[in-house]
Simulated scan of single mutants.
Amino acid sequence: MTKRRIALGGLATIASVALLAGCASAPATSTSTPTASAIAGFKPCMVSDLGGFDDKSFNQLGYEGLTEAAAALGVKPITVQSNAETDYAPNIDSLVSQNCTLIVTVGFALSAATVTAALANPTVDFAIIDDAADNDFNGKTDAPNIKPILFDTAQAAFLAGYASASYSKAGKVATYGGMNFPTVTIFMDGFAQGVSYFNSQKGKSVAVLGYDPANPDAATFTGGFEANDTAKTTAQNFIDQGADVLLPVGGPIFQSAGAAITDSKKDVALLGADADVFNTFPTYADLYLTSVLKGIKQATGDVVNQAATASTFDVTPYIGNLKNDGVGIAPFHNFASKVDPALQSELDTIKAGIISGTIPVKSYLSK
């Protein structure tokens, strides 16, 4: 590749994610039209996680960011879906063999396979969504040609937790995940912190089922990222315990929660994760209180554009937060008339406090 790295080794050292959390900003979208020479031979590619590209969540958002950016650049992307964990490495290798210029892998489960492929193919650019590619846990990305795309969703989930506690009539809310990964539990932790903040501000005692910040290893997980009977039973168990707001975190498992709520015929609200599920999966539109949002689509598109047009691939981790609009919460939609009229103003004040640092939100990205 002729547009490449004069000194790739100089980019090898990436500061720890924790240190970068305060200084990384959203990658700027280029408004100029790239020259033909800038994108000659550029081929963006993507490998999904198990949820597939139609999961109405993070796989789909990454896919849309990649394909829309490719269309704007006038290039043809290649995408491949993973149906089992054993597909990850072969899928990545197949894209390398097809001379992909940039390979985006979607999800922390692909981290090890991404690092292996990146080290074996130093002239290929890689980006990974929802993982720091730090499998050695030394605070550095494990290959010099991988750009992590990360989101401090604890900040947005804090807002959602506060809103859920405000809405709850039962005084019980619940959150649970697909599997015990940091990019799953970051939602659950932020959600619990938001409930706790509501309790401290309002003198209430709304309980969080499924996750205890003091004992995160005892949290509830469905064991995967599929909408299946296990995910539905998990939701039903929390409904049976009296929770009237649910936050499932793990791709399409929220769909199983929607089915459980519908079958229960109880007044239970549902929260989405990653995307505004009111728009992406309207089947349960009347159940959605809000969604905890990641700017996956925009961030992925910006990384694709930068990889195509810049002379050197920027591997500095992108960390989305409330300040750079990389995370947020969706509107209340059909619940707008059901929530406390003062809630939105309170959330606006809390958001400003989180951004300024006067309201601390702990996460593995902000320690």
Rank of each mutant, 00 (worst) to 15 (best):
G320R: 12
D142K: 04
I261P: 05
A275G: 07
A12T: 09
A36E: 06
F137H: 06
M46R: 13
T86K: 14
E64R: 14
Y197L: 04
L102P: 08
T230M: 10
H333A: 06
D136L: 01
G178E: 13
E68G: 03
T79C: 13
A36I: 04
K323P: 03
Q298K: 14
T316D: 09
N199M: 02
A310R: 09
Y88T: 11
L209H: 03
G223K: 12
F254S: 08
A12I: 12
S345L: 05
S337R: 01
T280F: 12
N99E: 15
Q60S: 04
A36N: 02
D134E: 01
T283Y: 08
L102W: 14
I359M: 03
I253V: 10
V47D: 13
S166E: 08
S30L: 05
S200Q: 15
V115M: 05
V361F: 03
F221Q: 05
Y162F: 14
L287A: 09
N321C: 00
F238T: 00
T67F: 10
F332I: 04
Q81N: 11
A132I: 04
T312C: 10
G22E: 05
G62L: 12
L271E: 15
T2Y: 06
A21P: 00
T233E: 15
M46I: 11
G210P: 01
A227F: 08
D340K: 04
A275F: 08
S200N: 14
Y63P: 03
G51Y: 11
C45N: 12
S366Y: 11
V249M: 05
T116N: 14
F281L: 12
I329W: 05
L289K: 12
K297P: 00
V173F: 02
Q241S: 04
